[in-house]
Design a protein around this nucleic acid. Sequence first.
DNA 1: GCGACAG
DNA 2: ATCTTGTCGC
Length: 234
Amino acid sequence: MTVPDPAATPASVADAVAVQEELRSWVDLVGPGPAEPATVAGLDVAYAESGDLLAAAVTVLDARTLAVLDQAVSVGRPAFGYVPGLFAFRELPALLAALDRLTSRPELLVCDGHGFAHPRRFGLACHLGVVTGLPAIGVGKTPLIGTWAAPAAERGAWSALRDGNEVVGRVLRTRSGVKPVFVSVGHRMSLDNAVAQVLALTPRYRLPETTRTADRLCRDALAAARTAPPPERR
DNA sequence: GCGACAG
DNA sequence: ATCTTGTCGC
C-alpha cells in the first residue's frame, strides 16, 4: 500500500524524482542474467515533429539468428515532458502497452537509453526491468552522465564509464573505427554480460539489431498513425 | 552563478 | 527525438 505504482505517471518533476529514489532499491545489479538467451527484445520510440504523438515498438529477435520472431506497437501521447534524467516517464506507458501486446515473453530487454548510468542510478532500462521483472540492459547513443577515456579503435574495445569514482557502465566500440555506444546494467544483469549481449547483437552495425528493428517498426507505426489518426475519444 | 543534459 | 543536402568511404 505504501509502494507507488511503478508504471504510474508522476504529477510533477519532484514526484518523479521521488519515485525513482524509491524504485531504485528494487534493481538487481548483480544478475548475471542469461548467458545464452533464446530471445532478446528491442524497444524504441518515435515522435511526431509536433511532439504530441508517439509510437512505441518492441521487437523480439531470435538471439542466435537475429531474425524477428514477434513484434508489437502502441501509439499514444508522451506521458511526461522531456526532462533529462526523467526520460523514462515519457515513454514508459507506451512501451509497456506494446510489451503487453507481444504474444511471447522475451528473455532480455535491450533499451534505447541508459540504465544504471543515470544521475540517480535509475534510467529507463532499470525502470523497465523493475516493472516487467525481466533482465534488462541500457544502450545509449550519447552520454547522460560520467567521464571516460576513448576505447581502442577495434570492435570489442571498451573503457569504464565513471561518475566520480563509481563505475556506472562501459563505453563500448561495437564497430571498428565508429563512435562507441554507452552500455549499462538495467536489471538482473551483470555489466560483463550486458556487454557480451550487446556485442552478440552487433555483428555489423553500431547499434544492436534489436534497436534497429524496433526503430524501423516505430517509425513505420508513427507514419501510419499520422495518415490514419486514431478515433477521437472524450 | 554557469553549463550539461538519455530520447 | 525531429528538421535537413551533400558527401566521404567501403
